[in-house]
């Protein structure tokens, strides 16, 4: 395996559509909940330990070779609002396109054929990591990091926040990222005994509610 593949996969410039999404930051900025670096950090920490942990668990399980279709159903069960299901599948489809061109594999082809409109993004991300020869923990890191790097970049654009401050926020979250990725990978290891119920199912109701509202905004900078 090439550990360096993780840099390619987790790079914010990996062409899988993430740049058009704020991870819930746009409605949070509009509501005044994110207004500076400190509140961005609170937002990101909350998202990491909820949506981030769930995504990381799914990605780790997928990277470990568990049935992606079953994981896709587990992802649906953990994504109560339609707007976020749509977003996750849209991003999953875009990730699939990039992954199949980057690390082609029969497993990616099979999932693409079974879910032509897109599987949940963390499931595809995990399978991309697997195709790249990465470990489940690596996939968990990539998924967890993405749930905070997306809102941080988006907030730089939305609030004209100092980019150095936003990057420092991400650096301060590093210990939490370690814990989240480790917990996610450990949960994925329990699947053989407990099934997909072993995967984290933490939820952030406010993220769900504002995502659904945001989907109906007539004017917005980000797709989600």
């Amino acid at each position: 395996m090439n550990r360096a593949a993780l840099f390619v996969l987790a790079d914010g410039r990996f062409p899988a559509g993430g740049h058009a999404h704020s991870g819930g930051a746009e409605p949070a900025v509009a509501a005044g909940r994110i207004k500076d670096a400190a509140s961005l950090e609170d937002f990101c920490r909350g998202r990491l330990h909820t949506a981030g942990l769930v995504a990381a668990g799914l990605a780790a399980a997928s990277a470990a070779g568990h049935d992606p279709l079953e994981l896709d159903e587990a992802a649906d069960a953990r994504t109560p609002v339609p707007a976020l299901r749509t977003t996750a599948r849209k991003l999953g489809r875009q990730m699939m396109r990039a992954a199949r061109a980057t690390w082609p594999s029969g497993e990616l082809d099979a999932l693409a054929a079974a879910r032509p409109r897109g599987a949940h993004q963390p499931v595809v991300l995990g399978l991309a990591a697997r195709s790249a020869g990465l470990a489940p923990l690596d996939a968990a890191y990539a998924a967890a990091y993405e749930t905070v790097s997306g809102p941080a970049t988006a907030t730089v654009r939305l609030l004209s926040l100092d980019p150095f401050d936003a990057t420092a926020v991400l650096a301060r979250l590093a210990p939490d990222l370690d814990k989240t990725a480790a917990a996610a990978a450990a949960a994925a290891q329990r699947i053989p005994e407990d099934g997909t119920d072993a995967l984290p199912a933490a939820s952030a109701p406010l993220l769900d509610i504002t995502a659904q509202q945001h989907a109906a905004w007539p004017v917005r900078l980000f797709a989600s």
Binding site: R13, P15, H19, H21, K90, R157, L158, F222
Partner: peptide, 16 residues
């Protein structure tokens, strides 16, 4: 939708 970055969507990340 292009997330405040129209050139990204036509050049750097054309997936959407």
């Amino acid at each position: 939708e292009t997330g405040a970055c129209p050139h990204t969507a036509i050049r750097d990340d054309i997936s959407a």
